[in-house]
């Protein structure tokens, strides 16, 4: 029996081995991904990102415990950075996830970022697809919030939680610019620390700058506040306004409120059609990337390197414009 079939049958060792092959993009791993593709598209993908030490792993632990109470199967993909000097990594997220040990309804996989631009996002997407096909209901992806590949990973998720902690990012400058672009829910973890109010104020200010919503109006000379709503209508389209929630992950505080926010977001995704749109956008990008990759591969197989370099030499000598050179190369491909 092949790996893909064993994974569908619930074989955990086969699952673990396939994850490695997908991470290493071996031919066997890629073939299995293709075979599993029709079985994907069912799981809820939850991204958890934020600076190191904000309490992401502790929060993931709590989220998983709660989903387990609802008897959902949970997979966790925990990404930590590789050393840029040696390529090695210490992956320590499991330390905070001890509570999940001994439960076969949970599967935790640590991944090193391996420093590859775009490659990480691709490998993570593959790993997530395998978990999805294996029947996990919720897949939580923990990443360190920095850099473009993190944004890509957040885009992979249906719901993205950005975790902040008081004292780490309480002035606006310190809160990374791209974060609001990806956050569906802003979590202020370590709410037991001082400075939590300042952090919340800073985040609220940023949110209001990004999503100006009129909350106060005048009526007979009196100011009335309109309760903040988590969605607004914009030209007939429903828009999501990121929610802010406070938690203390180490004491499981604020979890019901956070889970409620996730449920609200899930309902919004369904209602607004955003769920389908996100899936479509994601598949489109994957489709496009693969097409380019394969076209280049195909071209390289048909046209010898010497031909490419001789035409490039012509371009360098200014005898041929780049477009003309490419045109001649493409002629070669057809013949």
């Amino acid at each position: 029996m092949n790996l893909a079939q064993s994974v569908l049958n619930g074989d955990r060792l086969a699952l673990a081995r396939l994850l490695s092959r997908v991470e290493n993009t071996t031919p066997e791993g890629l073939a299995a991904l293709d075979a599993l593709f029709p079985h994907t598209g069912k799981a809820h993908l939850l991204g958890v990102t934020g600076a190191p030490g904000t309490g992401k792993s502790s929060l993931v632990n709590q989220l998983a415990l709660h989903y387990r109470k609802q008897e959902k199967k949970v997979a966790i993909v925990a990404v930590d950075p590789s050393s840029p000097f040696t390529g090695g990594a210490v992956l320590g997220d499991r330390v905070r996830m001890r509570d999940l040990s001994g439960d076969t309804g949970v599967f935790i996989r640590s991944m090193a970022s391996r420093g590859s631009l775009g490659g990480l996002a691709q490998a993570t997407a593959g790993v997530v697809q395998v978990f999805d096909a294996a029947g996990f209901d919720v897949i939580i992806i923990e990443t360190v919030g920095a850099g473009q590949s993190e944004v890509d990973i957040a885009r992979l998720a249906h719901t993205t939680l950005v975790v902040e902690a008081p004292g780490l990012g309480d002035d606006i400058q310190a809160i990374k610019a791209g974060i609001l672009e990806i956050a569906d829910i802003l979590v202020i973890n370590k709410a037991d620390h001082s400075g939590v109010d300042a952090t919340e104020r800073a985040l609220k200010t940023m949110l209001e700058l990004a999503h100006p919503v009129r909350r106060v109006f005048q009526h007979h000379g009196q100011a009335f506040e309109v309760p903040a709503h988590h969605t607004i209508e914009d030209n007939g389209r429903l828009l999501w306004i990121p929610l802010i929630r406070r938690t203390v992950a180490t004491e499981a505080k604020g979890l019901p409120e956070l889970l409620e926010a996730i449920d609200l977001h899930t309902a919004y995704l369904r209602e607004s059609g955003d769920w389908a749109r996100r899936e479509e956008a994601r598949l489109e990008v994957e489709f496009d990337l693969l097409l380019r990759e394969k076209l280049v591969e195909h071209f390289r197989q048909q046209v010898p390197d010497e031909v490419v370099s001789s035409l490039f030499a012509e371009t360098l000598a200014r005898r041929l414009a780049p477009r003309e050179a490419i045109g001649q190369l493409l002629q070669r491909m057809k013949s």
Partner: peptide, 29 residues
């Protein structure tokens, strides 16, 4: 030291039972 040698090290922390260790070894392949 293993990280500096280019390996990927999964560190699980203190007080692990043999069951927890075997399970982590499996999930992490």
């Amino acid at each position: 030291a293993l990280r500096d040698a280019g390996m990927e090290v999964i560190y699980t922390g203190l007080r692990q039972t043999p069951e927890m260790i075997a399970e982590a070894a499996l999930q992490e392949d």
